[in-house]
């Protein structure tokens, strides 16, 4: 565990907490993509199956349980409790266009052809693109509430911090996982446009509005 990794994990946790607080306090999930949340739940479930096979540390197991349970709680809030506020018409991204290529890619490019390893690889590929329905929703409506922007910023920062962690681990421990590094870079690149808008608009107190 190094500082970048810890900061990345905490940023990830912060993103999820911001999201849950936003939904709970405003009693609304307007502006949020349920499809992205379904993809994230799928990511955590397929990646953390090793919870039952491999023990790494208390921290590791605890965070995995938190990520799985909070993602399921978010889906429950969006599709059941606050369903009436869910912006279904704008959340029209076809997630099969992301899931199917990730399934194929994980079957072809993986480090070991076992069930757990392929599912882990699938989750890494899927995570890199799971935010696309949310970004698509923001681009369709042309704006995002500032709380949604904070959520996206924290979520995007997490993988960017992981990249620093991977660089550190490569030099300090000689450890690297090419699949995770490649997908993590793709994931971070997808957020770049949003990061730019966040820094130039939201941090200056303006609403995140896309240029017409």
């Amino acid at each position: 565990m190094n500082l970048f990794r810890l900061a990345g994990d905490l940023s990830h946790l912060l993103a999820i907490i911001i999201l849950l607080i936003k939904i709970w306090k405003t009693r609304s999930c307007a502006g949020l993509s349920g499809k992205s949340q379904i993809l994230f739940a799928l990511v955590y479930i397929t990646r953390y199956l090793d919870l039952v096979t491999t023990y790494i540390s208390l921290y590791n197991s605890f965070m995995k349980v938190i990520f799985i349970s909070t993602s399921l709680a978010t889906i429950y809030l969006m599709y059941s409790k606050f369903r009436a506020t869910y912006d279904k018409n704008h959340d029209s991204f076809r997630i099969e266009f992301l899931i199917i290529p990730c399934v194929i890619l994980s079957l072809v490019i993986n480090s070991n052809f076992t069930v757990l390893e392929v599912l882990w690889t699938f989750s890494i590929y899927l995570e890199s693109v799971a935010i696309l329905p949310q970004l698509f929703l923001v681009s369709k409506t042309g704006e995002a509430e500032s709380i949604t922007s904070h959520y996206l910023f924290a979520l995007g920062s997490y993988r960017a911090l992981y990249i620093l962690n991977w660089i550190y681990r490569y030099y300090a421990e000689g450890h690297y996982e090419l699949i995770a590094i490649f997908a993590g870079c793709v994931q971070t690149i997808l957020y770049c446009d949003f990061f730019y808008l966040y820094v130039t608009k939201v941090l200056k107190g303006k609403k995140l509005q896309l240029p017409a």
Partner: peptide, 10 residues
């Protein structure tokens, strides 16, 4: 030492 198959990151 962590086995490379045991992914120790989240």
């Amino acid at each position: 030492k962590v086995d490379p198959e045991d992914h120790d990151e989240l």
